[in-house]
Computed example of a mutant assay.
Amino acid sequence: MAIPVADAFLPPDIHVAHLLAVATAVTAVGAGTRATTLVGSVALLALVAAGVERHTLLTESVLVELGALAAVSALLVVFTHLRDRHEQALVRARSVSDTAQRVVLRPLPERAGPVWLASEYHSSEADAYVGGDLYASARTSHSTRLIIGDVRGKGLASISDTAIVLGAFRAAAHRDIPLPELVAYVEDAVRWGLAEFSASEADLAERFVTAVMVDIPDDEPVVHVVSCGHPPPLLLRRAGAVVTTLQVPEPAPPLGLAFGGMYDGMYVPAIFPFHEGDRLILYTDGVTEARDGSGEFYPLAERVAIWADRAPGPLVEAITADLEQYAGGRVDDDMAMIVAQRGRVPATA
């Protein structure tokens, strides 16, 4: 609308009506097909108005400008239509992807029996919810079970192995079977899954999953831990802000390495005191191997002691924020963490 008004006050040898194409082009960049069509039509009417004002509407120059503007507007309308179709397809694909990823890595409940839970997950892949790290929880009739693990590799390429581990754990963890039997079941499922989906035997030998599985009985102030080549959990005592590393005396190799008889031993759980108010911190190496600008690893145990008075949710939030700041705002590896706090143990225990 401004261009034909300005055109009326300009000398006859200065003609700016060709700038009307800019309005249509700018609209096409940030708007949809309808808006581009509307602005293109108004631009054509404005060019006609400018030609009428100068009494040059039927001259060869103005007719050429009208034809060129109509052609440019039509092309921009087609462009926005195709772009909108691609964006809709991308939104649908993103929605399906997000749903599928959230099915694989379900959020933990805030409470499982007498145990309060909080968790944090970060994938190294942009816009991805699932990567090479994993966690899950399950309830039996008398205990809460947790798993945290790290698939060899990171990002989207490791999702299939993540799904195998989580599927096996969820299928068996709710049953009233001893923790060693649960670990053996998951190990068997991982070996089958890796063999089924590996392209070659060489590839199979290089694929494994480190994991920690814990069982927290409802009626006993202890925690049972089986470690399969995973970083040891931390135990934050309710009193004294004491952080203890739970080193398992008889750790097992990572899941998947028992293939071909590499490990035929029994899974032996370690038992540690876990009283009311104590917090158990499970994590992957994406936390402890994050580095600052000088290359120093993140001191998780020292940082946890600083926030010893915090509940699981605020504790996880504090560690996550501190970790990102420590690493300069960017954590390059997959990262997962669970904080579990023991509630009241029945007096009959």
Rank of each mutant, 00 (worst) to 15 (best):
V225F: 06
A305F: 01
I177P: 03
V91T: 14
P269G: 09
T27W: 09
L257E: 14
P253V: 13
M337I: 13
F274T: 04
R279K: 14
G131Y: 04
T284K: 07
A43W: 14
A50F: 00
Y326K: 02
A336V: 13
A70Y: 10
A74K: 06
P314I: 03
L58T: 11
V268N: 08
P269L: 11
F208I: 04
L182Q: 07
D334H: 01
W192C: 07
P233L: 12
L146Q: 04
W307L: 10
T162D: 02
I271C: 13
Y283Q: 04
L236D: 04
K154T: 07
S160V: 15
A168T: 07
L69M: 08
A311K: 14
L19G: 10
A172R: 14
S123E: 04
G67C: 09
G113H: 05
D278A: 00
D161G: 15
L204W: 02
V130Q: 02
D133I: 13
W116I: 06
I306A: 03
V212F: 02
L82N: 13
V77G: 02
E276Y: 04
K154L: 12
P254K: 11
G193E: 14
S160I: 15
G260R: 08
S227K: 04
V52R: 05
A241I: 00
R111L: 00
L38R: 09
T244N: 09
V39K: 03
S198R: 01
R207Q: 06
L57K: 00
L69W: 11
G229I: 05
S137N: 01
V190R: 12
Q325I: 11
R106T: 09
A25N: 03
T144E: 01
A126I: 13
Y298W: 14
W192S: 06
A205Q: 15
Q88H: 14
D176K: 01
G155R: 02
P346A: 14
E324A: 08
F272Y: 15
L323N: 07
A195P: 05
A252Y: 09
E296G: 05
L105C: 05
T59H: 07
P231S: 03
L90D: 13
V16L: 15
A321I: 01
V48H: 03
L236T: 08
A305S: 15
Y185L: 11
D334I: 05
S143Q: 06
V287P: 01
H55R: 12
A89Q: 10
I14A: 07
L38D: 10
Q88M: 09
W116T: 11
I319M: 11
A35I: 05
D278V: 00
A308E: 07
D309T: 08
